[in-house]
Design a protein around this nucleic acid. Structure first.
Lengths: 350, 350
DNA sequence: GTGAAAGCGCTAACAG
DNA sequence: CTGTTAGCGCTTTCAC
């Protein structure tokens, strides 16, 4: 099937114009649903467009509108380890999905090109390759942020909020980690725990884990646990770290009745290791995880955990970026900085 | 920092041309390292370009070259479950990384738009939004394949090879699953196993798992195992499936000395469940997994497994797609269809 | 309501 | 070796 000798793969508005006996300008207006055009011609043109299976040439449109319909999603290289970043990956897929719903395509990249060490963020902006950014990155470079702010590039920070920056100028949707830690500890205490260990992930990304510990301590104080009965241990967010921790501190752990693991993967490791020492969960010791990632329902007993409100975060972030792109700095946009509350999901480990 | 009153963010070749006292054509040639230009002007122009921090406007370039520098990577929606698709995700990140090394950006999408149920593949082609595709998808629609073939869109199938299609027209890099199954079983037999259970993942994507079973049986026959001593059980590729399987068939399993789990996650589940029944791995029963995903080194004992040659596959696929894009159907391209051999990694479960 | 014409930033054919 | 010119496909004034 060919139009004027050229394969159907590249139908242009001129082709449609010819068949509809109008100018290509009119076709363009029809396709963009301009109010200038009469319904009659609009319908006729759209029908032909459909018949020809027309799709806009996005380069051409971009060149003239300066919009690409593409969002750059920046992720953190170090999180490539899918084991310890299950939640981030779930987050990413949700973002991509939501963007698609909003008719936006997604370019995924690391902040830094691993070969040239140049900023991908800045490159994409200068190349006009994306309309904006979603940043799932706890340690984005200050340069990038400055650049984004200076040129007023639409961008929203998702999940992470780098604490080394003054982010007064950038939108973000993050979770309330203090609250999450608080809920977790409070739940343990309500279940009767009086001596609790918190497993804090380290290194800290932003203050994510530190905050969870803060919340944990707040609840402990509120529940009148003695200082020495709420201990905090830092470790890498890896299965083996928690696994070895349990083996190395088993005597201490035997004297405890609760563990707050700041990631489900750590909770899962604890359960396995405890089992090897003959300790029962939740009989001998109760455990609360964090994230509500797939780890929490991988092996029985399923893990009581803090649900990260990914649905809300991703939907809001995607809608927001779309807004920013559309208004494009016309109106002075107010800042959207929201901290969304996580909540407890009770399963079998408490 | 502004050039002619416009912010540095949009430096064009005309800006450079003015400063260098040449035509914009010359600038374009310099930037593209044309042999037509004298070294002297080339150096001068490039220096200025660098000073101005010039980056090409990719829409403009695309419009005129019909190349976008973007590859569409199509993944399978059902694989969103990161638990049971650890390997695919590792594969994807490697692909993205390699593409970036080749100066290609990556748009990630599902084959079908989940809202409109239209083909994303075809949309992107018609919109001229990508130069080609990498397909990590076992069940890509015949329509998409037909379209890709008909219009000669660069595309290479990675890891999967849909068996319902005549793929004589498309490049692919896949792994030899029959070989993988064979190696796994042979290793068990060499370690002294005489009664082995194979856990086959189902549903089958392509013939991936079926092939592994075929290889398994070949090795069993070669090792003179009795028919009834090499059993095959099908199950979902989920942790819990294998976990429950062990509990439900523990009496049978006690009579066995080897398990070939067709995914590391299944192997991991088996180990946990066996431990709960007091069976030791590898003492009482030996286990070989598949994929060499992060699951295989998550919990001790680390899993002996079949390494999927992801490095080779991804590098070859990315280089190939770049080739296809460059030559752009000029030369009649020969078909690249390679089946790459997986290999055994011995760890602690055998 | 519709069309003619200009322009987005780049590449490429053609001329010199 | 370099410049002039046209054109990629679309949107957007401006005129009618």
């Amino acid at each position: 099937m060919c139009i004027a000798g050229r394969s159907i793969i590249s139908v242009t508005i001129k082709d449609i114009a010819k068949l509809a006996n109008v100018s290509h300008t009119t076709v363009s207006r029809c396709l963009n649903d301009s109010p200038l055009i009469s319904d009659k011609t609009k319908n006729r043109v759209l029908k032909i467009a459909k018949e020809l299976n027309y799709e806009v040439n996005s380069s051409a449109r971009s060149l003239s509108t300066k919009k690409t319909g593409i969002i750059g999603v920046i992720y953190q290289q170090e999180l490539e380890d899918f084991g310890s970043s299950a939640y981030i990956n779930e987050l990413f897929l949700e973002l991509r999905h939501n963007l698609e719903t909003l008719q936006l395509d997604t370019i995924l990249l690391e902040a830094i090109n691993p070969d040239t060490f140049m900023s991908n963020t800045i490159r994409l902006i200068r190349q006009h390759k994306v309309d904006g950014f979603l940043l799932i990155h706890g340690q984005i470079s200050p340069n990038d942020i400055t650049y984004i702010n200076e040129y007023d590039i639409p961008a929203v920070q998702v999940h992470f909020k780098p604490d080394y920056l003054d982010l007064n100028t950038m939108d973000y949707y993050i979770t309330d980690n203090i609250r999450g830690g608080y809920i977790a500890a409070k739940h343990l205490i309500e279940r009767g725990c009086r001596k609790i260990i918190a497993l804090e992930c380290s290194p800290n990304i932003g203050k994510e884990f530190e905050d969870r510990t803060t919340g944990f301590k707040n609840a402990a104080k509120e529940g009148r646990l003695a200082e020495e009965d709420c201990m905090v241990f830092k470790m890498k967010c890896k299965y083996l770290s928690a696994y070895h921790f349990v083996h190395e501190h088993i005597e201490l752990i035997r004297t405890c009745d609760g563990i707050f693991a700041q990631a489900d993967i750590l909770a899962s490791a604890c359960i396995t290791a405890l089992k090897e020492h003959g300790l029962r969960v939740p009989g001998d010791i109760k455990i609360v995880g964090y994230d509500d990632s797939f780890y929490s329902t991988l092996v029985p007993p399923f893990i009581t955990t803090i649900h990260q409100p990914r649905e809300e975060i991703t939907v809001k972030a995607c809608n927001r970026i779309l807004d920013l792109i559309k208004t494009d700095g016309e109106e002075i946009k107010s800042l959207e900085q929201e901290q969304i509350e996580p909540y407890l999901i009770i399963r079998e480990t408490t």
